[in-house]
Simulated assay, not measured.
Amino acid sequence: MAKTTEKTQWPLNHFLCSHHIKISGRQEQDSRDDDWNPYFHGNQLKASKMASLLEDKLFEVSGQGAAPNKDFYQFVITKTEVIWRFWKISVRSEFRKTRPGELKQPHEYYLHDSQLQHQVKVVFGENVLLYTQGLCSGNFDYLARLSDRLLLRVLSFLELEDVQQLRCTSRKFQKLCDSEQFWEQAVRSRCDTVTLEMGSLARELGWKKVFFTNKLQLQKQISRRRQKQENVGTGADVM
């Protein structure tokens, strides 16, 4: 048993210590090159700044195990650790006093924990396993984690064809690309001026509809709306 435990622990210890131990040969030379490489340190600084944009909780999923398993599980990835929680659900008397369980470990441990990875795959599927392995390896989906304000700024530089493609990638981008904020931004960026009447009409019809309405039809709609308002005002004065 001792030999088995030692074998299991060695790759993890080696992984954790690899940044602190000088290894002879090519790796030592690479390490010295990195120490004097401004490009290397520049990339580290950029990665650090990007990481500061992330919220503490990177991922969370919960659900019941596949039949016949009725246990409930929660899986959370934060910036620093992996949290696996489980609740035993059974009508059998021997499990009535079973308490919920929780396992916490650093990202590096999770990447080497084949048993936990197997549980994640069984309960939540291979896609969740691969995604969380990527997160724990530092492959963060920064774009999807930016605020809507910053994402709208990014979208302002894209052509509509590109926006449509981005819209299909996730529910978050679908919602953002369909939002009134995006289409108002699109109208204002493509029009020299947006009059008060045009803004009022857009809030009534929707900015997306205004965007796809040609100028002549837009002017007709504004004129009809103005005439209607004048008629209402005249009728109010008469009364």
Results as ranks from 00 to 15, higher is better:
residue 138 G to D: 04
residue 153 R to Q: 13
residue 235 G to A: 14
residue 25 G to Q: 14
residue 166 L to F: 14
residue 189 S to H: 10
residue 175 K to I: 01
residue 31 S to L: 07
residue 56 D to Q: 09
residue 94 E to V: 00
residue 178 D to L: 08
residue 222 I to C: 13
residue 135 L to P: 06
residue 23 I to K: 05
residue 137 S to K: 15
residue 167 R to T: 03
residue 55 E to D: 08
residue 3 K to P: 00
residue 76 V to N: 02
residue 177 C to I: 03
residue 17 C to W: 14
residue 17 C to M: 15
residue 15 F to H: 11
residue 237 D to C: 04
residue 85 R to I: 01
residue 30 D to S: 14
residue 213 T to M: 10
residue 68 P to L: 07
residue 88 K to E: 02
residue 54 L to I: 14
residue 239 M to G: 12
residue 75 F to N: 13
residue 127 N to K: 09
residue 18 S to F: 08
residue 14 H to L: 06
residue 115 Q to R: 15
residue 203 R to L: 09
residue 210 V to G: 01
residue 135 L to Y: 01
residue 91 V to H: 14
residue 40 F to Q: 10
residue 189 S to K: 15
residue 191 C to V: 12
residue 26 R to Y: 15
residue 187 V to G: 10
residue 207 W to D: 09
residue 13 N to Y: 09
residue 95 F to R: 04
residue 228 K to A: 11
residue 184 E to T: 11
residue 128 V to I: 15
residue 187 V to P: 02
residue 182 F to T: 01
residue 197 E to D: 14
residue 27 Q to E: 08
residue 223 S to Q: 12
residue 113 D to H: 11
residue 184 E to H: 13
residue 148 D to N: 13
residue 194 V to R: 05
residue 223 S to W: 05
residue 94 E to H: 07
residue 60 E to L: 00
residue 31 S to G: 05
residue 230 E to V: 07
residue 126 E to I: 00
residue 88 K to C: 03
residue 203 R to K: 11
residue 21 I to D: 07
residue 218 L to A: 01
residue 23 I to N: 00
residue 27 Q to N: 05
residue 121 K to C: 02
residue 87 W to N: 06
